[in-house]
Write a protein that binds this DNA or RNA. Structure first.
Lengths: 136, 136
DNA sequence: AATTGAGCTTACGTAAACGTCAGGATGACG
DNA sequence: CGTCATCCTGACGTTTACGTAAGCTCAATT
């Protein structure tokens, strides 16, 4: 692993299916901090890992600010104990929220499945009712 | 209790913890359609059910437009077969998305739990300022 | 009669998460 | 050497999901 550690912004965009604007925006929001060679950004393995977490968080409906908190948990530099404990508490709250969300999601999936079931029945019934409707 | 079928906008707001603006906004986006007595809105059991679905959808990170699609599934009036089938397909896609989201969420919860574990360890280590360096 | 309170419409404001465009620097290439 | 591609930094535009404020109606209360 010599130099493919570093990826350009375009390589990142292709790899993660995002735009340069998005990566720069995340940097402005302090979610990413790529190395600079001159003015050019280079993304390391660390940034890739963080971006993975960011995109995953987004799929869960978390705001970028929420995600920034979670990222702080991963970025343990042991700098400040009080800060770490605060972050830990925050993460526990977030964990509980996620577990509740998962449970609700499980219920909603059940509801939707049942609804689809009767929906299928209604469609079948509708098919029988008008044998040859004017198709398009 | 003959007339508690109908709820005013304020009663709805208190019951669901939303603002009047939110309910009017949902109406403008055709997610709700309360009865009008004069110019006043009255919400029936149906609207309450729809609002429940809306708020639940929001907690899953779905956009109002997404939710509107799902609501169409529940509002089966049997008017148009093609429309129903399209909606049904859409709902199936959405269901698969939800199941995948649930699975990802389950994984992420596991990750976060593990991370909290080591986080707790690090905090403890930081408290005993003589801890050995982590030889991971 | 005058005030108060709830509700209505219209319309401008706002925060989040980017999109898009202008203008400029830099290295690669024919 | 000029052109092209790629990157950069502003900076303004856009969409979503409401917040907020102004001004009007109407019924109940003081």
């Amino acid at each position: 692993m010599p130099n493919d550690e570093q990826m350009t912004i375009r390589e990142m965009c292709d790899a993660f299916d995002v735009t340069p604007r998005t990566l720069r925006f995340y940097e402005a929001k302090e979610l990413l901090s790529p190395v600079r060679i001159g003015s050019q950004r280079l993304y390391t393995r660390r940034e890739r890992a963080r971006l993975t977490i960011i995109l995953r968080g987004k799929r869960f409906g978390f705001s970028l600010e929420d995600i920034r908190q979670v990222l702080n948990l991963y970025a343990r530099d042991g700098s400040n104990l009080a800060q770490m404990e605060r972050t830990w508490d925050l993460a526990q709250d977030r964990l509980r929220a996620m577990e509740q969300q998962r449970d609700e999601l499980t219920l909603a999936i059940g509801d939707l499945k049942a609804e689809l079931e009767t929906g299928a029945g209604l469609i079948a019934a509708a098919r029988n009712q008008n044998a040859a409707p004017p198709g398009k």
